[in-house]
Amino acid sequence: MVGGRALSSLYKHENLRIFRRHLGLTQKELIHHFLDEEERPISIATLSNLEVKGGVRLNDVVLKIADKVSIDPMLFALDTQEFAEQIASLFPKKKDRLQIPGQGGKKTGINHLINQLTMHFAQQMMNGTLQKGDKIEADRELAVLLNVGRSAIREAMKVLEVLGMVDIRPGQGTYISSDEADFFRIPLSWSLFLNRSQIEDIIVVRNSLETKAAELAAFCEDVDELHHLSSICHSMQRALLEGNHGEFLQGDLDFHICIARCSGNDVIYTMIQTISNLMRHISGTGMVYEEQIQEIYEEHQKIYGSILIHDGDGAREGMRLHLARSRERYSCKYDRY
């Protein structure tokens, strides 16, 4: 599964066609942008056949494309509607054609401009001149400030709207997101989408935060939060017994977020929640096989048991072992793909 969503190899060939059409590419252009470097060159006829009914080279093509655009190849195994929604979110359309990630030139300039705008707005937020819900400068003013064209500003702002940083209201202007914290999450989100090599560093940070959160949760005195954690554990047990893996994996995500809340540290909670959401979009849970579900449940029970008896060291160690095993399960996903 990816983020708790059902996967099936039956959808891959259809999703390959959806991906190409969303980017506005012909089959020849898709081959040129993504598959020219293959040792065994692929023909238009072969690609057409793969899009219609699949074939032995389908997985290889999907992996090549996913690597080029830095997305999880397992996304191609989502049902077609879910896949289309994910791709539309990751690659918002422009008026003409999408700029293919990795082509350089214009795309590199837009990436830089997005970072400039993000830092500009974040600085205003920090010094108090801009608050959530405020209207920002017109694109003409921003173009002069950053020495770029107005069309480039408009293009960058559309991306920031997709990421949730701003709200573009036709005829009224562009406004700051209602959640001011987005301004300090978006740079992390955007850098992850652009540079997959940073995922390793993000995982290290997340693991450090999660182990500390588990330790602090062992001393939580918030009865409501502890009750919620208990409810999540019971829901996961029920899902395990019923063989409902989608519900179980959603419970897994909820379990980690709830422990972060139980830590009582708002910074830890916000960062874990943000990183978890990012990882769901980019690399999924990595836990996709039935035999792993029982392992996950048992690991959670050890963490939960330590929290109940206020054993901070035990909760921390339980979380550390769980995250290590989760990483092994994630690696196995690609071995079996």
Rank of each mutant, 00 (worst) to 15 (best):
G105S: 08
K93A: 10
D311K: 11
V267T: 13
K132M: 04
S283D: 07
T211C: 08
P101S: 05
S231R: 07
G109C: 06
S89T: 04
A324E: 13
H227D: 08
S178T: 15
E225R: 11
V148S: 05
R21G: 00
G173Q: 14
Q81T: 04
I186K: 10
I307W: 11
A138W: 06
M319I: 05
H281T: 15
L145M: 09
S8N: 03
Q99E: 07
C258M: 09
L10Y: 07
T129Y: 02
Q294P: 02
V205K: 04
V162A: 07
L321Q: 13
S197L: 08
V159P: 00
S208E: 12
A143Q: 12
S306Q: 07
I100R: 01
I202D: 00
D252K: 04
E299V: 05
R5C: 01
H33L: 02
A152Q: 15
Q86L: 01
H120W: 13
I268V: 09
A138V: 08
I282F: 10
K212M: 13
G3Q: 04
C262I: 10
G128F: 05
I114P: 02
R40D: 12
G318C: 06
K28P: 00
E161H: 08
K94L: 05
R280W: 00
Q123Y: 09
T118D: 01
H256G: 10
A66P: 06
A66R: 02
K28M: 09
S48Y: 03
D36I: 12
D179P: 05
I293C: 01
D167W: 02
T46M: 10
Q27A: 10
V205C: 00
D96Q: 02
L278P: 00
I268C: 02
R5P: 00
K132C: 05
I42Y: 00
D36N: 11
L117N: 07
K132Y: 03
N115P: 00
K95F: 09
T211Q: 10
N195D: 15
G312D: 06
E210A: 13
L78R: 08
N115F: 09
G243Y: 03
G314T: 11
V223Q: 12
S331I: 14
R329C: 04
E210V: 07
K212H: 06
G312Y: 04
V61W: 06
G251S: 06
G164S: 09
L192K: 04
Q172R: 15
K302Q: 15
C258T: 11
R140H: 14
M119H: 11
G312V: 10
P187D: 09
V162I: 05
G54H: 07
G55I: 03
R21S: 08
L10V: 10
S48H: 10
K333L: 15
L113V: 02
V2Y: 01
C233N: 06
H33Y: 15
L160E: 09
R97D: 02
V267P: 00
E210T: 12
V62P: 01
G102N: 05
L35M: 09
M287I: 15
A260E: 08
L75Q: 03
L78C: 05
G55H: 03
G171F: 14
D254H: 12
I268H: 01
